[in-house]
């Protein structure tokens, strides 16, 4: 199904079509992993909302991406609990091992790294999401093993 129809179907869940904007942006982001200008225009026309409205909302929320991402998105938490349990050394480690900077993408387009605020896994810190998979109790040893699963 084209995303246009998929987004139109979402509006049934809300008394006003604009309510569907956040889920619509997720749908538009799903294929390419980021929101291109074309994707934003598609959302705008499916919901019949001004482009400025769509872009204004899309840029407010940190989980919508506005430039191409790697094939896999690493979202690593560095908030207080994860920081105390060693998340900062993991950031340095990823830099050394994959040349991956926070906010950056590896040269081969395999991984992008985003530093997250709390992801609600403080009891198993440090923790990260890779795409939608959750991984916890990370160490320099096991983070490589985990990431090797993602081509």
């Amino acid at each position: 199904m084209d995303i246009f129809e998929e987004i139109r179907a979402l509006t049934e869940k809300y008394p006003d079509r604009r309510g569907a904007l956040l889920p619509a942006l997720y749908i538009a982001q799903e294929d390419a992993g980021w929101l291109s200008q074309e994707a934003l225009e598609r959302v705008s026309s499916a919901l019949n909302l001004p482009q400025a409205t769509v872009k204004g909302v899309a840029t407010f929320y940190s989980m919508y991406k506005h430039r191409p991402m790697g094939r896999h998105l690493i979202q690593l938490c560095t908030n207080v609990a994860c920081m105390i349990m060693g998340a900062e050394s993991l950031v340095d480690f990823l830099k050394g091992k994959y040349g991956l900077e926070p906010g950056g993408t590896t040269g081969d387009g395999r991984f992008s790294l985003v530093i997250m605020e709390c992801i609600g896994a403080c009891d198993r810190a440090p923790a990260m999401l890779v795409d939608t998979d959750f991984h916890s109790d990370l160490t320099e040893g096991n983070i490589v093993e985990i990431l090797e699963e993602y081509e």
Partner: peptide, 17 residues
């Protein structure tokens, strides 16, 4: 009416899970 009931499951306060 209508009245809306919303569950706040936006658990974002650092340290909270």
């Amino acid at each position: 009416f209508p009245k809306y009931l919303i569950c706040n499951a936006d658990e974002g306060e650092p340290g909270t899970f």
